[in-house]
Design a protein around this nucleic acid. Structure first.
Length: 597
RNA sequence: GGGGAUGUAGCUCAGUUUUGGUUAGAGUGUCGGCCUGUCACGCCGAAGGUCGCGGGUUCAAGUCCCGUCAUUCCCGCCA
């Protein structure tokens, strides 16, 4: 018998009655009846009730132990009387009558109770191990492990090998801010932590490995969001040689299907392969964003032109000056009280910072329409708008948003979701996937052309496009995978043609010399014979979040940083001491006082 | 860098607006006592407060004003 246990706390049943067993675990709960004491003993596998009777001579000792103390008990498995069986526990048919107790670790005081589910996040992060002991958080970490395991099995099952790539590497100019690591042996020089293994995985393709994947840590110095952990996160990163976009999609769809089918709750509706493909432009029109939540049935549509023939000067003027008017159909919203419309208007103005509350038109019982904008349109025009929206019933409603296209898209996207949420239109227990395809290669801001995504994506028309099209019109073989309103993956077919790579960077304002310098290693390898290749990277934490219906990414990370990128457990980031600073040839200057903490 | 929300006992929260006013309450946990069949055991009792911090107004501030800090959500940022 092992020194600490013969069984775990989750496995003993009536079958084991009268066996002599040894269990080890944490004191979860104690019920002290003076003469007899019950303890729920917990380990990774479950909870077992152990009983101390007066004859054991252990009553005083066990009642002095704090909750969460670690103990080892030895005793006899007793089948409980029928009246005492606890049907809520796997081990509820039995209990252990203890005759030997060994204290492994006594706890004198606890900052908070593991059973209490109302503890604020700040304390959960500070006392992280306690939080990880709670049932929900403990199960979450098991879940994460299982999901990653399925990912690995699925990838290797497709004949794709796992590789490791450097963590100490070179900074690359595009993208988020880098984390820099000062070099001791090269004074004044810095490594960068990889934002993704992008260049290395492409080099592995050049090296002829054909297929690659990695559970890859990625480091980006961005400000956090609820779905974005500051600093570091994991991607299921993949790259494939001699592939077209559809081959990459096949692999991604197989991966998602295996993971979601295996780990989503019973009865969940899961989109199966092949996933819908939505061109970027269509997604922006219908959903106002490039990561639509397709559980929401609402589709936005454009009704700009009708206002040119109307008397409503505001909308007419907006359209004449190149702006747009977009409509959000809201089936049955007319039954909502006036206060709902008012609240929605306030939400739009306050939270979405829209200059005015969205207008709306409601269909009346007698087939006429009401709403402040009705009088500016002919009845046939309103009728036509409702027909286009597929709205035919009394109280069906259309919301209108007008303005410069760039400014209205994100409010439209938010309103679409807000309306659907308020009206309970979201599909439940459902996972809707889509590939967003045909991303623009470039975007223009204040007259400056920049890459809108990955600079190594292949322009759809190759060199021809780069030479002959307006930059804003060039599409890339670039795609995202979205699920339930989250971007869960991004990828592209890469540009393996060196001349068009230079041309692509030139359009974004980079000289040949700059490109040579910044991507020296990759260019050097490309000149040694590069196969056509492409790939993707799925955000592992986000996928787990979605499957568990969590809204905060910290819930799926064992030791997360808080919302201000601090570790409340270790205190990181901390100051370096003088010796370290000297060795690294670093010196502070202009240090703002707040950063010292 | 900007905006919103929150901050009262170890923890969760009430009290803060309408109306500033004697000793700031409850639940839970902790500690002490009782209890031989509970399973979130029960009963009795006790301790526990810089009302985030600083300043101001006032005879008087948890409450009003200004500033600041912390946490969180959002915008910017995220090839």
């Amino acid at each position: 018998m092992n020194l600490y246990r013969s069984h775990t706390c989750g496995e003993l049943t009536a079958k084991n009655a009268s066996e002599i067993v040894k269990l080890s675990g944490w004191i979860y709960r104690r019920r002290d009846h003076g003469g007899v004491i019950f303890i729920d003993l917990r380990d990774n596998y479950g909870v077992t009730q152990v009983v101390f009777h007066p004859e054991s001579g252990l009553i005083d000792e066990v009642s002095s132990l704090g909750l969460e103390s670690v103990i080892t008990v030895e005793g006899t498995v007793l089948k409980r009387d029928d009246a005492q069986i606890n049907p809520n526990m796997v081990t509820g048919e039995i209990e252990i009558s203890v005759n030997n107790l060994q204290v492994q670790s006594n706890v004198e005081s606890l900052p908070w109770s593991v059973i209490d589910d109302s503890i604020p996040e700040e304390l959960r992060l500070r006392d992280r191990v306690l939080d990880l002991r709670t049932e929900g958080q403990h199960a979450m970490m098991h879940f994460r492990s299982d999901v990653i395991s399925t990912m690995r099995n699925t990838m290797t099952g497709m004949g794709i090998r796992e590789f490791q790539t450097p963590i100490l590497t070179a900074s690359s100019p595009e993208g988020a801010r880098d984390f820099l690591v000062p070099s001791r042996v090269h004074p004044g020089k810095f490594y960068a932590l990889p934002q993704a293994p992008q260049q290395f995985k492409q080099m592995l393709m050049v090296a002829g490995f054909d297929k690659y994947f990695q559970v890859a840590p990625c480091f980006r110095d961005e400000d956090p969001r609820a779905d974005r952990h500051p600093g570091e996160f994991y991607q299921l990163d993949c790259e494939l040689s001699f592939v077209e976009q559809k081959d990459v999609f096949n692999v991604g769809e197989k991966l998602m299907s295996e993971v979601f089918n295996a780990h989503c709750p019973e009865g969940a509706v899961i989109d199966q392969a092949p996933f819908r493909q939505i061109p970027y432009a269509e997604s922006m029109l219908k959903y106002g964003c490039d990561k639509p939540d397709l559980r929401n049935p609402i589709e936005i549509f454009d009704i700009s032109s009708v206002w040119l023939e109307s008397d409503f000067a505001v909308f007419k003027g907006i359209v004449e000056q190149g702006g747009v008017v977009r409509a959000i159909p809201a089936k049955g919203a007319g039954v909502q009280p006036r206060s709902w419309f008012d609240k929605l208007g306030k939400y739009a103005q306050k939270e979405l910072r829209m200059p005015a509350a969205p207008g709306y038109i409601v269909k009346n019982e007698d087939g006429t329409f009401k709403g402040p904008l009705v009088k500016f349109l002919k009845e046939e025009q309103v009728q036509a708008i409702f027909e286009e929206a597929g709205l035919t019933e009394t109280n069906d409603t259309i919301f209108l948003v007008a303005g410069n296209e760039k400014n209205v898209l994100s409010p439209l996207a938010a309103l679409r979701n807000k309306i659907a949420a308020d009206l309970d239109m979201f599909e439940k227990n459902t996972f809707r996937f889509a590939w967003i395809v045909d991303f623009p290669m470039y975007e223009e801001e204040d007259g400056k052309i920049d890459f809108s995504h990955n600079p190594f994506s292949k322009p759809q028309g190759g060199m021809d496009d780069l030479l002959n099209k307006k930059p804003e019109d060039i599409l890339a073989q670039q795609y995202d995978c979205v699920c339930n309103g989250y971007e869960i993956a991004s990828g592209s077919i890469r540009n393996a043609d060196i001349p068009s790579m230079f041309k692509a960077f030139e359009i974004a304002g980079y000289t040949k010399e700059e490109v040579e310098e910044n991507f020296e290693g990759m260019l050097k390898t490309f000149r040694l014979g590069v196969p056509p290749h492409g790939g993707f990277a799925f955000g592992i934490e986000r996928i787990i979040m979605i499957m568990k219906d969590e809204t905060n990414i910290r819930r799926v990370i064992a030791f997360p940083l808080n919302g201000r990128a601090k570790c409340l457990l270790t205190g990181a980031p901390l100051e370096a001491n003088e010796t370290q600073m000297n060795e690294l040839h670093l010196r502070h200057f202009n240090l703002p006082e707040v950063a010292l903490d």
